[in-house]
Design a protein around this nucleic acid. Sequence first.
DNA 1: CGTAGCCTTGAAGGTGATCAATGTTTGTGG
DNA 2: CCACAAACATTGATCACCTTCAAGGCTACG
Lengths: 233, 233
Amino acid sequence: MKLSSSYLQGVLTEIKSFQLFQGYSLEQLEKHCLGAEVLVCKHRERLYEFGEVAHRFGIVLSGAFKLSRSTPAGEDAIMHFSPPGDVVAAFIMAQPQPRYPVSVIAMGPSRFLSIPRQTYLDTWKKDIELISRIQNLLSTRMNQFYSQKAMQKAPLSARIAEFLLNFSDKSTADEFDIRIPLTRKEIADALGVTVESVIRIMSDWSKNSFIQTTEQFITVLRPDKLLEFMQIE
Amino acid sequence: MKLSSSYLQGVLTEIKSFQLFQGYSLEQLEKHCLGAEVLVCKHRERLYEFGEVAHRFGIVLSGAFKLSRSTPAGEDAIMHFSPPGDVVAAFIMAQPQPRYPVSVIAMGPSRFLSIPRQTYLDTWKKDIELISRIQNLLSTRMNQFYSQKAMQKAPLSARIAEFLLNFSDKSTADEFDIRIPLTRKEIADALGVTVESVIRIMSDWSKNSFIQTTEQFITVLRPDKLLEFMQIE
DNA sequence: CGTAGCCTTGAAGGTGATCAATGTTTGTGG
DNA sequence: CCACAAACATTGATCACCTTCAAGGCTACG
């Protein structure tokens, strides 16, 4: 599934628009993509497995991926959702013999630019600006953890509200779209609770038209109402 | 509380022994500590406040600090415990106008080497090896989060077991010492549960001599027993 | 000597888990 | 193209675990 160089050009212009590479030239990007391949993944395809030695890292081109781990009970615990433009496993590339700290699974048809670890060591690691931007991504991710952890003792409704608002696209004014197709099960796995509990709360919100689900995509119609759930109750 | 240069020399040799600075010369360290001061903190003293603009970061010299946030209900949610050698707030220094993502509070009498943000931008940021090591620290911290999140649905006894074993000093063979003075309240705040629940489980373990508490320090006498709680139940 | 923080124990109550059953959608192979 | 399986969504009943509330004791510290 290696890519021809003409195809690579298209990918380069694609990733050029990502936050991470703001201001980078195509030549620079080409160096950073040495040995890269585009992986076209189907829904639920497993890209990396938790515990495997990590020879590659990469960037989400389209679709989305979930980063998760199995619990002792054999269930899934989702750590993070990676939208297009997000880097996956770049943080651990500098370690001597890195192993994937999570499994990476496609959510719906997705594309991923897979880059060999050696390229990280050769070019990424020496690009201070890039490292710095990746560190910012990591620290954003860490902050999401913090916000969720701060709400651990709050009732489930508050935690789901926080979760949904966190994932919302705040660009539009009143309504918030969630650009990743999330199932109730995935929300449950991300919060460490059961599907049934999530459904009970969210179907309540659906009935009251606070949220809406059309074809896997959730829209928050009344963010103000969800905020109420976060604070008081 | 600025330090005289002779005093600084002592601090430099002190931090030279930390993992983070393995192989660094005193001259290099001196550059990285431009404008640094040693802060001597009393128990429960608050070093940084959540949300404040971050002008400084630093390294824990002795004692320990907890990084926490307030929950909407006014309680504490502890995100991380920083032992000597750990860096605090270094990850966010590269951001345009960084704000502390957590409050930093001393646990027992502690000392902290506080360094101005400008020094980070001038010298730390340009030291690729150092940045890389800090990224490893961050990724270790992230991994702790992952492990805890993977156990969210497990019974509380399993989560406390995981927590205690995670903090143990594995250097000694059979017994594990926890080098940070942890109160039951702090364990509760770190796990997002109530003190009472933690006490009920831990006093049970104390009665069975699985653990022992002497002067704020907890020793795991029977790590094998705690492991059992983690897995099956 | 009094207050503040921490530890402990007990009783009662609620939130979310578990179990079970059924419907719906999606994807796959004959 | 249909049949079947697998994943996802939904609802109800019961139950357990952890929380909440209350009260009391202990130690450290100004």
